[in-house]
Design a protein around this nucleic acid. Structure first.
Lengths: 208, 208
DNA sequence: TCGCAAATCTGCATCCATTGCAGATTCGCA
DNA sequence: TGCGAATCTGCAATGGATGCAGATTTGCGA
């Protein structure tokens, strides 16, 4: 399957992401031009746009993988799990998934989402799309208990809780140092917000 | 307070929004240039950017008003209301609010949010910002029961439920004709999603 | 191995949004 | 009436994005 052509393309794509990350860190997002990034990966400026639809997309390579992980988590539900339990487990999967580069990009990504409007916008659009996919999958997994709209509402509520809490947590400078603390506080706040669902005591803590 | 200068500025701003709406409807968003819009409102292209930070913003004039309505709703809570009840009432306020132009722009806005990435991105950014403001206000209203993070998680959950349901509802063509039906379905789905909170039967139906 | 067709890559020209700058214009108020 | 501040504008430049047409490269069957 992986022809020379495909491998080369993948390599170039990867190079683009890495070069961009370097430049964004060193010079800042707005100060880095697409031409520079393309040059760094040794391709023409015009060619860049056949790899990514736009500059912002460099910050979110491989979004699909995370969504797939969530969808799979839904499929692997236990016979006693309800939609809420399944959904929660699926969302945990999204938080995990750390690559070599992802790891390095994670911090940069968070900063750019905060500082660059275009990046934040894309981030939210990707999230909304993922949300819809998960909702659809969830509805399919519980045909008797959820229609598409209710599944979307439920998914939106859970994702919204996480996002909302995260937004506040990540704007605190203290949290910049201690990811573990953020993780803890997040878990706590989300648990509290979703408590009415899981009245039967808090569940496991295997997040992120 | 309203000096001639201010009034003139407001009038021009309004004109820009109206002209833009016309052009967006007639020619489409991408096919309409800022220069055209500016010309239509009889100002120089350069001047446009002193009224709006960018083209997309024309689709969301007066966002503040809606948020203020929500914040006020929080302040007017009854002594027996908990955070969830207050939040729900506040969110209803956001759905209301229909101006002369807003009414006309509403349909266009929904379409552009679906079709133009930049507009969708801005829409989500505005929503997230509103969400944070509401969360902060909510936390302040219930100092004993909510810290900022939990308030954000709770707000995110509620807003997320509405947004999620709406996303699915609005992509159905049938709904294009019958707003009342959408309203009903939305209410139902959100009620279902948030049921664990309001276990004591569904409340009133005065939305939108 | 050879050679063609498809997939890619590029440079070029162009459009358009956005911004800094500097010189008018206009308005608010003493 | 007259000055200082707020506005408005044109001009030029930057940079992202796209259509186009002519190379280049790769995959694969003859």
């Amino acid at each position: 399957m992986a022809s020379l052509r495909d491998r080369k393309r993948a390599r170039t794509r990867q190079a683009l992401v890495e070069v961009a990350a370097d430049l964004f860190e060193r010079q800042g997002y707005d100060e880095t031009t697409v031409a520079q990034i393309a040059a760094g990966a040794e391709i023409g400026t015009r060619t860049f746009f056949s790899y990514f639809p736009g500059k912002e997309h460099l910050v979110f390579p491989e979004t699909d993988r995370r969504v797939h992980a969530a969808l799979e988590a839904i499929d692997q539900r236990g016979p006693k799990d309800g939609p809420a339990e399944v959904l929660l487990r699926a969302l945990r999967r999204v938080g995990d998934d750390s690559d070599d580069l992802s790891e390095r990009l994670a911090a940069l990504r968070l900063r750019l989402i905060r500082e660059v409007p275009a990046v934040q916008g894309l981030s939210l659009r990707i999230q909304l799309d993922a949300q819809r996919q998960i909702a659809t999958h969830l509805a399919a997994a519980f045909p008797e208990r959820l229609d598409e709209v209710r599944a979307a509402a439920l998914t939106g509520a859970f994702v919204g809780a996480v996002t909302g809490a995260l937004q506040v947590l990540l704007e605190r400078e203290e949290s910049r140092d201690d990811p573990a603390a953020v993780q803890r506080a997040l878990q706590e706040a989300v648990d509290a917000a979703l408590a009415p669902w899981f009245s039967g005591a808090g569940s496991d803590r295997s997040d992120h």
